[in-house]
């Protein structure tokens, strides 16, 4: 799996940054797709993008503790208040897609494996 720059991922997958527009130069080493927080704690790795439908502020705590590169919220879901300010504080952008987890994961996988 290759390393990409987050900004390129955002452009190619047509993601909408909801926060952290100034933080898109970081590297993406992979991705993890799950809505169970303990699963993400146990199995994601530093530098990965996290694809999820969870929108509450605990996603920022998990992403920060795991040093994840960014969070992609699927199906156009809108994060709860405070998520975006926490996102800026932790330096972890929240990105939005209208696609489902299955579709966005498939496209991101192709980018990372291409």
């Amino acid at each position: 799996m290759k390393t990409l720059i987050l900004e390129d991922v955002v452009k190619q997958l047509e993601l909408k940054p909801l926060s952290g527009q100034a933080l898109l130069q970081k590297e993406v080493t992979g991705a993890y797709c799950s809505d169970l927080l303990s699963d993400v704690m146990g199995h994601s790795d530093e530098g990965q993008v996290w694809i999820t439908l969870q929108t509450h502020k605990n996603i920022m705590a998990v992403a920060a503790l795991k040093d994840l590169a960014a969070i992609i919220l699927v199906k156009g879901l809108v994060p709860e208040a405070e998520v975006l300010s926490l996102s800026e504080k932790e330096g972890i952008p929240v990105l939005s897609t209208t696609l489902s987890a299955f579709e966005i994961a498939g496209r991101l996988y192709q980018l990372l494996e291409a």
Partner: peptide, 16 residues
């Protein structure tokens, strides 16, 4: 529903 309570907490602690 928040994504907690999947029964992975204590196993995660043991593994880590």
């Amino acid at each position: 529903q928040m994504g907690f309570g999947a029964g992975m907490g204590l196993p995660n602690i043991r593994k880590n």
